[in-house]
Simulated assay, not measured.
Amino acid sequence: MMTAKPTGHYVLKADGLYLQFDRLFHAPIEDVWFSLTNPNAMKGWIGTYTGSPSTGGVRFQMSEEGAEWMNVSILECRAPHSFTADSGSGPTGVRVFCHLVEGGGMTTLTLGQRMKDASEAASIGPGWDFYLDRLAASRSGAELPVWESYYPGFSPHYRELTVPSTAKG
């Protein structure tokens, strides 16, 4: 059993501030892509979806008890390398991206969520650490981590993260 630790960090992108996470898998890129995009494989770690992603939209439901179905717009998809998606719209909308890179028998997953402001990180950061550790556990057959190992214990780490400067050096 692994000991959970907070792994997120901030990255400034052209469209805003993102809280970003990296995970490394001993697997081919197509295999990791399947875990991120196949509705049955997703059930093991985050939730599932209905609909056809090729239409540009699906309905997604997280696996937590009582989670509502939500509309997700797929803004960009380059299988098996990356996708960008928005769930919800307006002030409650969320943008998430996943990028995959394969090399030396390993695949690196980089996942990021755009932040409305840095105060959100105290709740969003522990959630993504939790789900990404669930992804790793579900892929390896390990015991799934429990939420209480992540929240509220990781919140101080995310409250204390420094937002990168926008100044050009």
Rank of each mutant, 00 (worst) to 15 (best):
2 M>S: 14
2 M>E: 13
3 T>M: 11
4 A>H: 03
5 K>M: 08
6 P>T: 01
6 P>L: 08
7 T>K: 13
10 Y>E: 02
10 Y>H: 07
11 V>C: 05
12 L>R: 15
13 K>G: 09
14 A>D: 15
15 D>K: 07
17 L>S: 06
18 Y>C: 02
18 Y>A: 07
18 Y>R: 02
19 L>M: 08
19 L>A: 07
22 D>A: 09
24 L>D: 14
24 L>F: 12
25 F>G: 06
26 H>T: 15
27 A>F: 05
29 I>N: 09
32 V>T: 10
32 V>I: 07
33 W>M: 00
34 F>G: 01
35 S>N: 11
36 L>Y: 07
37 T>L: 01
40 N>C: 05
43 K>Y: 01
43 K>Q: 12
45 W>N: 07
46 I>E: 04
47 G>F: 04
47 G>I: 03
47 G>W: 05
49 Y>D: 04
52 S>G: 06
52 S>Q: 14
52 S>M: 11
56 G>W: 00
56 G>H: 02
58 V>D: 08
58 V>G: 08
59 R>D: 15
59 R>K: 15
60 F>V: 12
62 M>A: 15
63 S>R: 14
64 E>F: 14
66 G>I: 09
66 G>Q: 03
69 W>Q: 08
69 W>Y: 06
72 V>C: 09
75 L>W: 00
76 E>Q: 13
77 C>M: 13
77 C>G: 04
77 C>E: 13
77 C>I: 06
78 R>S: 12
78 R>I: 07
79 A>N: 11
79 A>K: 13
79 A>T: 12
80 P>K: 02
80 P>A: 05
81 H>C: 05
83 F>D: 03
86 D>L: 12
88 G>E: 09
90 G>E: 00
94 V>Y: 01
94 V>M: 13
96 V>K: 02
98 C>W: 14
98 C>G: 08
99 H>W: 05
99 H>E: 15
101 V>P: 01
104 G>L: 08
104 G>R: 00
106 M>G: 05
106 M>Q: 14
106 M>C: 09
107 T>Y: 00
107 T>E: 00
109 L>D: 05
109 L>T: 01
109 L>C: 02
110 T>Y: 01
111 L>T: 11
112 G>D: 04
112 G>P: 04
114 R>G: 00
116 K>P: 04
117 D>C: 12
117 D>H: 15
119 S>R: 11
119 S>N: 10
120 E>P: 02
122 A>K: 13
123 S>K: 11
124 I>R: 04
124 I>K: 07
125 G>T: 11
126 P>N: 14
126 P>T: 13
128 W>H: 03
128 W>V: 02
133 D>N: 14
134 R>Y: 04
134 R>W: 04
134 R>N: 06
135 L>D: 01
135 L>V: 10
137 A>E: 01
139 R>L: 11
140 S>I: 02
142 A>G: 10
143 E>G: 10
143 E>M: 10
143 E>P: 03
144 L>Q: 13
144 L>E: 09
146 V>A: 08
147 W>E: 13
147 W>I: 07
150 Y>V: 03
151 Y>R: 10
153 G>A: 12
154 F>W: 04
154 F>S: 02
156 P>L: 08
158 Y>G: 02
159 R>T: 10
159 R>G: 03
161 L>V: 05
161 L>Q: 00
161 L>N: 07
161 L>C: 06
162 T>I: 12
163 V>C: 10
163 V>R: 12
163 V>Q: 12
164 P>S: 03
164 P>C: 01
165 S>G: 04
169 G>K: 11
